[in-house]
Design a binder for these strands. Structure first.
Lengths: 216, 216, 216, 216
DNA sequence: CATGAATGAGATTTCATTCAT
DNA sequence: GATGAATGAAATCTCATTCAT
């Protein structure tokens, strides 16, 4: 979480850290914008500073180094994603899950492009890989529990274990995330709707099977 | 450093019996290895040269610039993938498709990591994006025709149009490709088998439906 | 080498009381000196940095790139030349014009060599050509107006239109500028005086003509 | 002269050196074309080889190094100019002198641009400067003798020593040569004619003076 | 003879980082 | 606390030159 970094810093007496936190958030937004537009490999602290309208000194003042900036960015993104999952966790609804995904795209068109850039580099950023793995495992467990509930209620096919289904759906999401920036025209709302419907159909209960049955 | 290389081996100038094509292939292999190990963002011509045991000058002798090197690499990778698809195109067999995918991994563990790095940067490499789009469309059309044949033969569910199914499977493949380098332990053979089986089950014909029917 | 510089003087990082404008001027001076001594084709940012006693990084901090540096240099030179022309514009005196030219040489022996190098490359520096053309047109118009006034006052021959005379004098100036660095011994003060006198004689009124007459 | 280099080489027994000489001439033509189009500073042996349709090896085979190539180019250009002067040396005709100049432009539009690039760099090419100085002195002496004859015949003003007049005319020629590539639109035939006429007028005998008189 | 592969130095440029002010 | 000047390393690319074939 971004908060951790804040507690590691020297605690400023009395004065609210609001400014500090706000400035960091501002820089993270600039960083996301740069990564989305130019790609991770072409992103630099200079460009982030320029986009945020401040000097390079400011960036390295608020973030010890590039790694910290990128990690903080990833953290904030995963926090957003977490919050999004919380919203659907209670409802046992696969379709709602996908629609949350799409809602993110509408809110912030950079969200998935940035995520995919961060993920692509996760492996090569040591401070990064472990943390992403941990977060990802959580997502999958949320997916799994939603699908499990669905199986119990008979709204999800139960011939495939929920954790494998979760893996499949997560992979599909990752695949879309990856291709969306490359072929945006394949992901217009009217093309996405049938894709979502098809995904829902894939995990729907099989017609001939008894809805009451758990996977044998 | 090129200096180091000089002390390690006899410096050979002049004109060896150069096989232009072979040397290019050698350099592409080195480039793939660097990208797989260090990531696209950290790959440099220097490192490629070092890995290939030559100077950066030699690299730029064979490839006018970095872009050309990377594009040639992408092309060779897509050619490999194409050949792989040709092998399964005739056989109407979804499982074989997945298994080809896995076979690639066994042959050349760098194959999918490199592919995912290239894809992640496709958007930001203008010379690249169009070409990848074209190739990708071909893959999907092969997937689609395999699935269509499967639907005709009753071995693939026909409640979802073949092109949408193809999109789903392609996205799943992309998602795995992306996560494989990050969490390799999730993709051990014993974990992959059930994943493949589950994917095959997802597209299997629905039990209650008449196998003869085409999608209405 | 930057390393040498490091051992010669204390390495100063951080933020000195920098005067941006002054530092740029300093670098421009260094650039002029390098160009005068080594020629445009052999001038490099490295050499400029060395001459200015800083690293190439510092140079590119003050000038985005080589083109910007060279253009700024040309601009400052043309500004100097402009100021010089302003000093003679009011006085209707062809001889004073030439003498200003010589004064520049005495002030700054690099002035004309640098100018000629810049001009020689103007054509091949796109950011440059247009700007030089514009400035040059101004010079010729100043020459023309001086000569026109001279013709009105009867101190300049009026059988040749002032603008053609201006062109001739400008070309002579350019020719001298070009040859001065190549054969400096032909441009010693004692050789230059008769040259100037001869040039003045060339544009002097023709003896037999009525001084009152304008060109017909 | 280019011939000198040919005699320095090992004399090939029996076989005519025509090929060798022709190949060198071909490369010189390519070099001239590259310099005219890209400027001296951007010219490289590679580009020369490319333009000549051969390999870099060929260039360095026919010319020991870059300096030799450039010097040979300058020599051939000055030879051409010499031949041109020979054509007017006999005729005591200032106008013919200028028209030869223009004829060169029509024959080979690159002639003066290349000359000006070579001259601009003469100073910084040690093997070059002395040789250009020598050649230039010859040109001026030809000019001087033409003007002297003109003074004797009363077709050239004799209030200014012929050698100074020659210097002025040479400088004007250099100035035009320098500006021609930069502002070609100022040197269209219809603009050049009045310029030439004006130059002729400048050196014409003064109206009131006795044509018989030599300079006092 | 002539080629063209390869070198090694150097040019331009970018960049994360440092640190005096 | 915050800035921005400056560094130094590295990256891409260009180039004249060398030399085995």
């Amino acid at each position: 979480m971004t908060g951790d970094a804040g507690t590691e810093r020297v605690v400023r007496r009395g004065r609210p850290t609001g400014d500090h936190v706000a400035k960091r958030a501002e820089l993270l937004k600039a960083a996301a914008s740069v990564i989305a537009q130019e790609g991770y490999a072409n992103a630099s602290l200079r460009k982030v500073a320029q986009r945020a309208g401040c000097t390079t000194g400011a960036v390295t003042y608020y973030f010890a180094n590039k790694e910290e900036l990128v990690t903080a960015l990833a953290e904030s993104r995963f926090d957003t994603y977490d919050a999004m999952l919380d919203a659907v966790r209670g409802r046992v609804d696969v379709k709602a899950l996908f629609e949350q995904w799409l809602a993110r795209t509408a809110d912030d068109p950079d969200f998935w492009p940035v995520m995919s850039q961060l993920l692509a580099h996760a492996r090569y950023e040591p401070a990064f890989a472990a943390f992403i793995e941990r977060r990802y495992a959580r997502f999958r467990s949320v997916y799994t529990s939603i699908l499990e509930s669905g199986q119990e209620q008979g709204t999800v096919r139960d011939d495939i274990p929920a954790d494998l289904l979760a893996d499949q759906l997560a992979a599909m999401g990752d695949g879309w995330m990856m291709m969306f920036p490359i072929e945006p025209e394949r992901f217009t709302p009217q093309r996405v709707r049938p894709l979502v419907d098809a995904a829902v159909a894939l995990v729907a209960p099989l017609p001939g099977t008894r809805p009451s049955g758990r996977r044998a």
